[in-house]
């Protein structure tokens, strides 16, 4: 065990986790479109082919259904596959294998089979991807019993959670916001550095307002919290890190202290992650609330191409800052 850390960006931290796990466990392998020689659309897997060879780093045809089916089947047969869906938007092509097969196999077959598959999903806005290359679908999958949903927001969490995902014995959807690939922070080099599912992370502490945020919205919220601090408003920024299981305790505990909740989530507002968290707090933490719950989401609109239009709808630090001030 080492306590050493190294500064790296999110995408490299994911790769490091995959590399370490592939080295540790022969049954771990990865497949997807253009992930080998090309290194992946976002360079997450660059170098893995050279290191582990084409048997374990598999370039596939453009066949999302086959990729997911193959991964889920291999998992049922005792392997630990990682499947990459190049853009979250393409999940629509392979919903069947995830929702009706992977998520349900264990339960419907009476607990006879495990499905230890990790499904990697780059998602979100920020590259002028427009309506079919920018979406945030994580809340859809929260609605599917049997799946675990991970959504880290920085490099060290990417590493620790990816390792947990690969070793987990159930199907894990691992959402990677494209913008967070480029965020850098200190990442532990310890090969047993694992972050358990269901443990939120507090980025800042404060008594005034609780801000729960996911993915790229965590950074935006931290920026907003730092600005608000200058005005003597103390915010507690919490990243749940895993949406299923969800760390209710940390969220409710914070609201007990602050009495005010702002939720920031890049998904469209209706039936979003923020909707689920708001419902949870209304149900189990109503007595703590001193104000109405505020949800900051992308409105219910397809993502437009023009950068000024995209900026207009995606929650920003400035918007969070204003909304917090309105609340106080």
């Amino acid at each position: 065990m080492t306590t050493e850390t190294i500064k790296m960006k999110g995408s490299d931290a994911i790769k490091l986790a995959i590399e370490e796990e592939m080295e540790r466990d022969e049954s771990v392998f990865i497949m997807g479109e253009d992930i080998g020689q090309y290194g992946g659309a976002f360079s997450v897997t660059a170098g893995l082919l050279e290191r582990f060879g084409p048997e374990r780093v598999r370039d596939t045809p453009i066949s999302e259904n086959a990729i997911l089916g193959c991964a889920v089947g291999a998992a049922m047969a005792g392997m630990r596959p990682i499947a990459e869906v190049m853009f979250a938007d393409f999940l629509c092509v392979c919903m069947e294998m995830i929702v009706n097969q992977a998520a349900k196999a264990r339960y419907m077959y009476g607990g006879q089979v495990n499905v230890p598959v990790t499904i990697r999903v780059p998602f979100g806005t920020g590259i002028m991807g427009a309506a079919q290359h920018s979406q945030s679908f994580e809340s859809w999958f929260m609605h599917v019993p049997g799946l675990k949903i991970v959504l880290p927001s920085d490099a060290s969490d990417f590493k620790g959670l990816m390792k947990t995902a690969i070793r987990d014995n159930d199907p894990v959807m691992f959402f990677e916001h494209k913008r967070t690939y480029y965020y850098t922070n200190e990442v532990p080099l310890d090969k047993e550095f694992m972050i358990p599912f269901g443990q939120a992370r507090k980025f800042t502490e404060g008594d005034d307002v609780t801000i729960v945020a996911t993915g790229a919205m965590v950074q935006e919220s931290i920026i907003a919290a730092n600005k608000l601090k200058e005005e003597n408003i103390q915010c507690e920024v919490i990243d749940p890190r895993t949406l299923v299981p969800l760390d209710k305790k940390t969220i409710l505990g914070s609201i007990e202290k602050t009495g005010k909740l702002v939720i920031v989530d890049e998904g469209c507002k209706t039936c979003s992650v923020s909707a689920e968290i708001a419902a949870l707090v209304a149900e189990e933490g109503f007595q703590y609330l001193k104000r109405n719950i505020v949800r900051i989401n992308t409105p219910d609109v397809p993502i437009p191409y023009a950068p000024n239009l995209e900026r207009e709808i995606i929650p920003s630090a400035k918007l969070i800052q204003n909304q917090v001030k309105n609340l106080i």
Binding site: I62, V93, G129, A130, Q132, P304, Y305, A306, L309
Partner: peptide, 26 residues
């Protein structure tokens, strides 16, 4: 042609029965 909403991957001209470029392969 799509008022800047679609971009390169979604160019379409329904007046010409060009039913659209598509971001989803297939």
């Amino acid at each position: 042609i799509c008022k800047g909403r679609g971009g390169s991957m979604h160019v379409a001209d329904f007046s010409k029965n060009m039913l659209g470029a598509n971001g989803i392969v297939g």
